[in-house]
Design a protein around this nucleic acid. Structure first.
Lengths: 206, 206
DNA sequence: ACGACCTTTTACTAATCAGTAGCTTTTTTT
DNA sequence: AAAAAAAGCTACTGATTAGTAAAAGGTCGT
């Protein structure tokens, strides 16, 4: 008996609509950002009315937070499902690729926009912070392991490397490559991987 | 006779207050962002009333655009004043350092926030676009020259290198290093330079 | 088929904020 | 020193939007 079988048809429909709302919100957050996204926008995009929307999420902040939580859960899931034989550096590269592809397909970057209001709102959510912490710990372990394996520079502190890595997931260079450079998604992923791991300097330059 | 001598004392005071307003706006844009910054905030921070503010700038968009124009003018000036003996790569490094220090001292990043409204507003301003174009052309020439000198990788397109470079000026990693890592401004500048030019991968890794 | 219950919607409220009208005070000119 | 002019300020307007109350519609068991 599946977990869904316990729910009535109506409850299943409710859960389904919740996902539709989260999808709509994700698209709107990606295109307009939190401040400019209105709850009427969300309701319209999801095909329901605003009061129905409030049956699912108690506020705009709650809604946006749930979207970010779902995104982080996706990342944690992806990381857990990675081939066990992959090196730490390859895992880092693979997760970056996943995050970039999510974004290129109209999704959101891991790292929320610079808006301090959004940042504060997220840090107030225990469920969100728990996931950030869990992901960060796993990432720390990966970087340390990659350093030991000789694949990552040891002259940069691990937290600096992680900040640089996280920032790549919301790097505006991606948008510029897509909209001005007209590069393919595959090409963009390759370039970003090159930029984060080997930089723009020539290999033999000081 | 200086140019200012042509202006009455009152006109001089007017110009001075304009700079005060631009400074206040810069601080507010850096801390709250465009959407959350109100014109009452600006007037309060600048120590004048809102209608006086509108004597200087005809709209909120106009004000923000002028701030960005002043920032770009600063960059163009800095670039023009650089020691003629510097290599192209060193000029790129030096300008990045300048941009990062401006930001670390409460200023704005070159690249405006991801908000599409802000982006569209800026592209409507001919004065802004002219400066972006001028700076971009100079940067292109620098990257090409650095490639020829063997200081920058030739396997990445010049525009990709430039997008990566511009993105560093608004990189959230800077904020993380400052607020969580507690690194000094000098240290942050060094790390960012390392990250953009040589990447996070070990030198001998594939 | 009927009535109780639950869901969705239309239409509102309160708050916020960009931009302005008209009065007051200060400065300039004669 | 008085009239004229200009700058600033207080107090407003209209538009937008998060969140809600109450009506309208649908669904279920009996």
């Amino acid at each position: 008996m599946s977990i869904l079988a316990k729910l009535s048809f109506k409850d299943q429909a409710f859960k389904l609509r919740e996902q539709t709302v989260l999808d709509a919100t994700t698209r709107l957050l990606a295109s307009k950002g939190f401040d400019l996204m209105t709850m009427d926008d969300v309701a319209g995009e999801a095909g329901i009315s605003k009061p129905s929307l409030y049956k699912h999420f108690k506020s705009k902040e709650d809604l946006a937070t749930e979207v970010m939580i779902r995104l982080l859960d996706g990342a944690l899931e992806y990381l857990a499902a990675l081939d066990a034989s992959l090196s730490s550096k390859d895992r880092l590269g693979s997760l970056l690729e996943w995050a970039l592809r999510v974004r290129l397909q109209g999704g959101l970057p891991f790292l929320p926009s610079a808006s301090p209001q959004v940042k504060e709102m997220l840090t107030r959510s225990i469920r969100y912070v728990t996931r950030v912490y869990k992901l960060h710990k796993q990432m720390q372990a990966l970087v340390e392991a990659a350093k030991t394996a000789g694949d990552i520079r040891t002259d940069l502190p691990t937290d600096v490397i992680l900040y640089a890595y996280y920032s790549r997931t919301c790097d505006p260079a991606v948008d510029y490559m897509k909209y001005y450079g007209r590069y393919s998604d595959d090409q963009i992923v390759d370039y970003m991987r090159a930029i984060i791991f080997t930089g723009i300097g020539a290999a033999d330059a000081g």
